[in-house]
């Protein structure tokens, strides 16, 4: 496999949230007060871990546990992982986690008074294919309250973790759903300054991903940081 070692291009202004976001209260004591140190990108930053399905087994259907169907609206999520130059990112690992249809995580820390579903755990792992496409089946997550401010509710969302091809491409984010009225009120979503960047976190309904008699389909694409154009090295 070719290992790319060209450095990543700078982050586009306004496209990433600032850690100092007072409307999201938990940031208060957790954001660094000093500006980050800009460092040159060495092999430590330009390369990254590789995950193979034989060691990190895929879980591509979150809607079934022990052959029993979870409660809620079954959906299919499909999309493509590319870089900023629109080159597909093949065979990259994608981790997924989310609340159940009632807005409850199968997690001891979640004390929301909504029922757990014995047939829904809410975590998955898939790999993009040779052209960067990924797909999984799940249950549409419910909204849930949190204690950030009075009457605060998180919009429906699915959490994602992607690794890409280098440490500098690592990204953890959330996918939202079109038409969700809670987006307008959500300080985590609005922490991203640029409106277009924000709206790219909203999936789109897609009739071509929708499976007849089975599940609605949503499209959600990822863009990982691009690299400066320099020759690649044999890895």
């Amino acid at each position: 496999m070719m290992t790319e070692t060209a450095p990543f291009r700078p982050i586009e202004a306004g496209s990433q949230p600032a850690n100092d976001t007072p409307l999201y209260r938990s940031t208060g004591l957790r954001h660094p007060a000093r500006p980050p140190l800009r460092i040159p990108q060495t092999v430590t930053e330009t390369t990254g871990p590789r995950f193979r399905p034989v060691q990190f087994g895929p879980i591509a259907d979150l809607s079934v546990v022990n052959r029993k169907q979870a409660v809620g609206e079954r959906i299919i999520v499909r999309g493509r992982v590319v870089d900023e130059d629109n080159r597909p990112v093949p065979h990259t690992m994608i981790e997924i986690w989310q609340a159940n249809t009632g807005g409850r995580y199968d997690h001891p820390g979640d004390q929301h008074d909504a029922p757990l579903d014995p047939n829904f755990h809410g975590s998955g792992r898939v790999f993009s294919d040779a052209d960067g496409w990924y797909q999984f089946v799940t249950i549409k997550p419910g909204a849930y309250p949190w204690h950030n401010h009075h009457n605060a509710w998180r919009p429906n969302h699915i959490h994602y973790s992607l690794f890409g091809t280098g440490f500098g491409q690592r990204v953890i984010t959330q996918m939202y759903f079109p038409g969700d009225p809670l987006l307008a009120l959500d300080p985590i979503y609005h922490a991203i300054p640029d409106q277009a960047a924000r709206e790219r976190l909203i999936s789109s309904f897609d009739i071509n991903i929708t499976s007849p008699d089975r599940a609605l389909g949503y499209r959600f694409d990822f863009v990982l940081r691009g690299r400066h154009a320099t020759p690649t090295e044999q890895g």
Binding site: E84, I96, D110, H121, G122, S123, R198, L224
Partner: peptide, 18 residues
């Protein structure tokens, strides 16, 4: 040129993938 996907917090329930 495309722009890299925005980050969002990992949140308190990420242990589901741990």
């Amino acid at each position: 040129m495309l722009v890299a996907t925005s980050h969002q917090t990992i949140g308190p329930y990420w242990h589901l993938i741990e």
